[in-house]
């Protein structure tokens, strides 16, 4: 039986602000699952803490809402145990670049076969609008009417500096393109990082759709990292689309000497093991 979008809907009341970019991000996510013909029991989504994570009630699937900044290592643990599952780590710009930035770096370096979906609304929204490393520097934010004193991080530039195998950027008001990006990202064998420029009408009303419309532009896929970096660093345009992909680097499990030829998953292997043959080196 074909998978339908309804399979992914829940009847729990949603709590996002009207106009929140998260609505269309979830729409695209559900649509991508449907188009990949994945049932909710074949996917795992780990949720972070933030407005993004509050979407946990809004979508079906195997879901784990854990701790702030930790949705990436939680997702990796799940993926390593059962790589047949499509595993998505859902996270905000705050959780990803602040509380858990080390996890992003090592996930890319290790090239686990998961998808990291970053909701970049350029602020800590759930804690009512503090500055993150993607907030514009001069923009007044919670407790800092004169803007932040720190510099910024460009997510694409950071990701591309780590020799990733997949980086894409989407826009929350373009769920059609985002669906396509998500599908490609999930099909990519390795760590796919997807940044979504997300509208936040409450804490970032200046960057509304009109603001984005002037700046969003489609980019073709780049064949080198340096071209990709130039694309994500463009100061006039915010380029979207699959910006970089490398299909030649094996993912983590296929790099593990003792696991790469295994047909079973760790979840299938929990059985008593006779350790006799291991004892000779202790005699």
């Amino acid at each position: 039986m074909a998978v339908k979008i309804e399979d992914y809907n829940t009847n729990i009341k949603n709590t996002w602000c009207p106009g929140c970019g998260n609505f269309s991000i979830h729409m695209a996510l559900k649509q991508a699952f449907v188009e990949l013909n994945l049932t909710p029991s074949e996917i795992v989504i780990t949720f972070d803490i933030g407005c993004n994570g509050n979407g946990v009630d809004d979508i079906e699937g195997n879901r784990f809402k854990g701790l702030h900044g930790r949705s990436v290592p939680l997702a990796i643990g799940a993926h390593l145990a059962n790589s047949k599952m499509k595993v998505i780590a859902d996270i905000g710009d705050g959780g990803c670049l602040h509380e858990g930035v080390d996890h992003l770096i090592h996930a890319i370096r290790s090239n686990y076969d998961i998808t990291i979906l970053i909701h970049n609304n350029q602020n800590f929204a759930l804690t009512t609008g503090q500055a993150t490393s993607t907030t514009k520097e001069e923009k007044p934010m919670y407790a800092f009417p004169d803007g932040k004193a720190e510099g910024s991080i460009n997510i694409g530039e950071l990701v591309l500096s780590l020799n990733p195998t997949f980086f894409a950027r989407g826009y929350s008001n373009d769920p059609k393109q985002l669906t396509e990006i998500l599908k490609q990202g999930m099909n990519h064998k390795g760590c796919s990082v997807i940044e979504v420029m997300q509208i936040c009408p409450t804490y970032n009303p200046q960057s509304n759709h009109d603001w984005f419309k002037e700046r969003i532009a489609q980019s073709a896929i780049k064949s080198t990292i340096s071209e990709a970096v130039a694309t994500v660093k463009d100061t006039e345009k915010i380029y979207t689309g699959i910006i970089y992909q490398n299909r030649n680097r094996p993912d983590f499990l296929n790099n593990l000497e003792n696991r790469k030829s295994k047909k079973t998953e760790l979840v299938d292997e929990v059985k008593q093991v006779d350790i006799k043959s291991l004892l000779s080196s202790f005699k």
């Binding site: 795992v44 701790l67 990796i76 643990g77 390593l80 145990a81 760790l266």
Partner: peptide, 9 residues
């Protein structure tokens, strides 16, 4: 976190 994720799975 990896342990928790793998045990959950």
């Amino acid at each position: 976190q990896l342990v928790m994720g793998s045990m959950y799975m």
